[in-house]
Amino acid sequence: MTLIAGASLLVVALMLAIGGLLIQDSTGARQVFGWSFLLPNLGSTWNPVTGQFQGWSFIYGTLVTSLVAILIALPMSLGIAIFLAELSPGWLRAPLGTLIELLAAIPSVVYGLWGIFVFLPAVVVRAGAFLSETLGKIPLLQVVFMGQIPSSGASRLAAGLILAIMIIPTITAVSRDVFRAIPMAQREASLALGATQWETITRVLIPYGLSGILGAAILGLGRAVGETMAVTMVIGNSLQGSYSLLLPGYTMSSVIANEFAEAVSTLHSEALIEVALILFGFTLILNGIARLLVWKIGSRTVEEARA
């Protein structure tokens, strides 16, 4: 008992220690730049030579790549999970499920390499050209779809798409388990009323499993926000002063991975640590929101059950 209590306390202590360290070691940068480090500012600079550091570009990069990833991955994962749990013939279920789980075990550096040599030239370059020709012409969407995608394909779009592929297995596996956990009686109740299988899925099973699916999505989003290696390899790592998805960018994790070893000046490393602090807070808040959402849905059903 004491051991278990001690271990759980240790986790909390470790969290606090990491947070404290990040706050302490970024003191210099925070004093020099203040809140302007965080402010949304397209012209934000990050110049180790002149000692000018602002973090907005990285925050934007992380936000937008994760958003692209979750927007693509969630519907796809949900579809695969429904197929695996409800529609696929029995003999296909186990092998297909295992294959998808194996996808989650591939090291991210391998995803990055595959991205550079296969996915970017084959898919992202074409998709980027198409998007800039179509959505890039629409006035408001222009902001995120303007410019020409580099011939290598390295861009925020590439990072978002690679992230989508990387988080699909996680979201799929968790949502599939959510569907499998729904009692057979729920399906029978719906089918016995003359619902088709599809009506049963969309009107009974998805609402029933919604909190679990939400949890799966947040798990995936958490992975996307923190993912470093694969993103660093395909995002292009440069600041262009643009919001476009089709141009290279940076994420918080990729700038830390790229520059920390070369940060010579104290201010530079302090600025990077401040970026890490933001990333840390970001994931904390994200997880907090997720817990809150899942808890709210969960407690609502419990409340209803008690009423």
Partner: peptide, 24 residues
């Protein structure tokens, strides 16, 4: 129609449970 051994209402309101079939 069918009624099962264990009551199996949907986790929805009473109204939505009854109107589930007609809505289909």
């Amino acid at each position: 129609g069918m009624v099962f051994q264990r009551p199996n209402p949907f986790p929805m309101s009473i109204y939505d449970n009854v109107s589930y079939g007609p809505r289909l």
